[in-house]
Simulated assay, not measured.
Amino acid sequence: MKKKCLIIGTDLRLSYFHTAISNDLDTKLLATMKWDDELKDAIDQFEPHILFLPIQPLQMECPFILPESCEVLFVGKKNEEIKQEIERKDIQVFAYLEDEQYIWDNANLTAEGFINYFYKHEKKAIYNKQFIITGYGRVGKRLAYALHHLGAKVVVSVRSEHQLFEAKSYGYDIETFENVLEKQKSQSAYLINTIPSRWLENTQADCFKQVFDLASNPGCLLDPEENIPSNYALATSLPGMYFPKDAGLLIAQSVQNHLSFLKEEKYSVERS
């Protein structure tokens, strides 16, 4: 008999994820972002062995308590309620956003998604434009690679000396993070931020032609509540925006890989 898997969330990617795993699991998708009594009742009726929570934390309108039937929990970004329940409950927990293969594959989609976003909103070619990328993690690296091969002038700016000279070895221009603002007075460059921390004063956005913030919360603006610069664009969740099917299949692959690992682990324990 198939294991029951309940998927929660409204992201379009999840409908493709749901379809992709339905051959192996008895699946149900509940399109909501609220953890409330109605959702809890639906979960209790379905009695899932596997519970999949959305990328963004659910809005908690009642206590977050996992069902007794739950053996495996797939979780995106955690809030305090989720963390506390994970500590209380003795179950298998897999943070799919921390899966290395998923991170790199999703970074590729993010880079391609940014190119789509730039074309749509700027209505300009990338060729011969200057892009300053702050941060050189997975997304920063894939962005630099993609933009460079489209003929852009790529500048990588980070605090880490190791990452700075790694970027230089790939043929990109580099600038120390401390000096990147001082050298941008002509508003000739586009800034792409991939650092998920507040470091850019709102008025400093004027140093750039446009600021594209690809980082998850809290983003790069020091004051995100007031006086948002007119040339600032928060461009997160690009894979889901442009490639929901491909992005959903990436999630499915990550989940299936982890379930296969658990199955093999259980088989090994039983044999021993």
Rank of each mutant, 00 (worst) to 15 (best):
Y16L: 05
A95N: 08
S260M: 09
N128K: 15
T134W: 09
F243H: 04
N193G: 03
G113N: 07
M33D: 11
Q84H: 06
K78G: 00
L191G: 02
L222H: 00
H258W: 12
Y145N: 12
I50P: 07
G219A: 11
G219N: 08
Q84K: 11
K123L: 13
V269I: 14
A111V: 12
S237H: 10
Y119F: 15
S157A: 09
N227W: 02
H148M: 11
I91N: 02
I7M: 11
T10R: 03
N108C: 14
V156I: 15
S22T: 14
A252F: 04
N23G: 14
D213A: 11
L222C: 09
S254P: 05
C220S: 09
R88L: 07
D11C: 00
H121W: 09
E112P: 03
D37R: 08
M60P: 01
E68K: 10
A167D: 01
A20Y: 07
K34I: 07
V155S: 01
Y96W: 14
G219F: 08
A42I: 07
P229K: 05
L221R: 08
A107D: 08
I174K: 01
I115C: 06
K2M: 14
G76C: 12
M33Q: 04
E112G: 02
L39Q: 08
L164C: 03
E166P: 00
Q92A: 08
N202A: 08
F52V: 14
V72E: 10
D44V: 05
Y136E: 01
Y117D: 15
K4S: 14
M241T: 15
A167N: 00
Y127N: 15
V139G: 08
L234F: 13
H121E: 14
G151D: 08
F261Q: 10
N106A: 09
H258R: 06
L147Q: 09
N79Q: 14
P244M: 07
E270I: 15
Y170G: 02
Q101F: 10
I195V: 15
A144Q: 03
D41G: 04
D41R: 10
E85R: 00
I174C: 00
V75M: 02
E100D: 14
Y102S: 07
V180M: 12
V211L: 10
E225R: 09
L250Q: 04
D26I: 12
Q187K: 15
E166C: 00
H149P: 03
L181A: 03
Y190E: 05
T203V: 10
N217E: 12
I115L: 15
V156E: 01
A111K: 06
H149M: 05
S197V: 02
Q187G: 12
I55E: 00
F74E: 01
Y117R: 11
W199R: 06
Y119S: 15
K34D: 12
K28T: 13
E264C: 12
M241R: 15
G113D: 06
S260L: 14
T176K: 04
G151S: 14
I65T: 07
Y172H: 01
F114C: 05
I132N: 01
P218M: 02
E178K: 06
K141E: 12
E166G: 02
K183C: 10
A20S: 14
G76T: 08
R271S: 13
Q56H: 07
I7S: 12
L147V: 09
A95I: 12
H18V: 08
D206W: 00
F243W: 06
C70M: 09
N257W: 03
K183G: 04
Y145H: 13
P57W: 01
